Computed example of a mutant assay.
Amino acid sequence: MKPTFSKFFFSVILIIIIGMLVHYLHLGYRNFQGYCSETNALISDEKKIDLAIIELFKYYPKTNSELRRRFDRNASPLSTEMAGENYPVPYKNISEFKDLNKNCCRVTQQPSDIEDARATLFDRAMGTKSSFVEIRYFILYIDSTGKRKMLQRETMYAITNCGIVWNGI
């Protein structure tokens, strides 16, 4: 029996569909593993932490009013300690940040303090959330008496497979 044109056409379409399915499953698997197609590499946990710290530096308080807003999140009503002028002290670089905040950072798929925030199977397969970086750190400031003090904070960032940092939620 000679194969008809419709059987041949159906076979070609089926092969194309199977090929596309295998291709996209392979891409999803690579994304799930954290592979960045733009750089052809994986980003190490240490690099993810450094990227998250750089993002944190963008939002680190630079003025007294920004510092007061950060303090207000923990203290209500505003403590008399923060009533005067206080001057935030910025970190010089990532290594100083890590030295002053030992064990500050953790790379995770499931953040510890937010139940609904996690890198889902779909997020990881698409590469939109490779993981989260949780950061516990001190905001350094000089109070109105000239004493250097610290205010503890926590934050979290999501990171894509290619190292783009965002708030993730």
Rank of each mutant, 00 (worst) to 15 (best):
L51G: 00
L51Q: 08
L51V: 15
A52Y: 02
A52N: 04
I54F: 03
I54G: 00
I54D: 05
Y60C: 08
P61S: 05
P61A: 07
T63K: 14
T63W: 15
T63P: 12
N64K: 06
N64H: 14
L67I: 00
R68C: 10
R70S: 10
F71D: 04
F71R: 04
D72L: 12
D72H: 06
D72F: 11
R73F: 12
A75T: 13
A75I: 11
A75N: 07
A75G: 01
A75Q: 02
S76H: 15
P77S: 09
P77K: 14
P77L: 11
L78T: 01
L78Y: 05
S79R: 13
T80D: 09
E81S: 12
A83W: 12
A83Q: 09
G84P: 02
G84S: 12
E85L: 12
E85I: 15
N86E: 04
Y87T: 02
P88Y: 09
P90R: 02
P90K: 01
N93D: 15
I94G: 08
I94A: 03
S95Y: 00
E96Y: 06
E96A: 08
E96M: 07
K98D: 08
K98F: 01
D99H: 01
D99Q: 12
D99V: 07
N101Y: 04
N103D: 15
N103G: 08
N103K: 08
C104F: 06
C104M: 12
C104T: 07
C105L: 05
C105H: 06
R106Y: 04
V107I: 09
V107P: 04
T108A: 09
Q109S: 09
P111W: 05
P111K: 04
P111Q: 02
D113Q: 04
D113G: 03
